[in-house]
């Protein structure tokens, strides 16, 4: 892919950052308003995919993107699982369970810093979904039509 026309490039350059930040906002405020990890991650991935579509990529870039996105995807999953398992492990003496709230009395309800371990899970899911969407796009886009009769 060698990129699109200058008009698309200029607009994409302006908009992609805003889309990325908006996705991060959706992820971070997931426990207060509609949205959350999945929706925000999808928006983040949309910003990344937009810039890739507009500017085009070389094969080497595609390869490095697919490697790094798979690492991000795995680490997002591990982070999510870690939040869950810490709930089981930290509260010893049989009081803990899977997905137990890590900070039960932390922060003030209705503000950004609240809701215990839900924001952590949201961030983990956001990382995972964003990376997964990007890697799906990369895999589908980089499949060249190599078939020859």
């Amino acid at each position: 892919m060698s990129g699109m026309t200058p008009i698309v490039k200029v607009i994409a350059r302006t908009v992609a950052g805003f889309i990325f930040v908006y996705g991060c906002y959706i992820i971070l405020y997931g426990h207060l308003s509609p949205g959350g990890g999945f929706a925000g991650g999808a928006i983040v991935a949309a910003g990344l995919i937009l810039s890739r579509l507009a500017f085009g990529t070389s094969a080497a870039q595609e390869r490095s993107t697919s490697i790094s996105s798979s690492i991000f995807e795995s680490s997002g999953g591990i982070l999510f699982l870690l939040v869950a398992v810490l709930g089981l492990v930290i509260f010893a003496q049989g009081a803990g369970f899977f997905f137990k709230n890590l900070f039960p009395e932390f922060g003030k309800g209705g503000t950004l810093v609240s809701a215990g371990s839900i924001p952590l899970s949201n961030i983990a899911i956001g990382i995972k979904v964003g990376a997964a969407m990007l890697s799906i796009f990369v895999v589908l886009a980089s499949t060249k039509y190599i078939f020859k009769e």
Partner: peptide
């Protein structure tokens, strides 16, 4: 009592760790 959670967490965690 916590075996059910461990039985999910262990293979799932290993599944995410394996590609890294």
């Amino acid at each position: 009592h916590s075996i059910p959670a461990l039985l999910i967490a262990i293979p799932l965690g290993a599944a995410f760790l394996a590609p890294i």
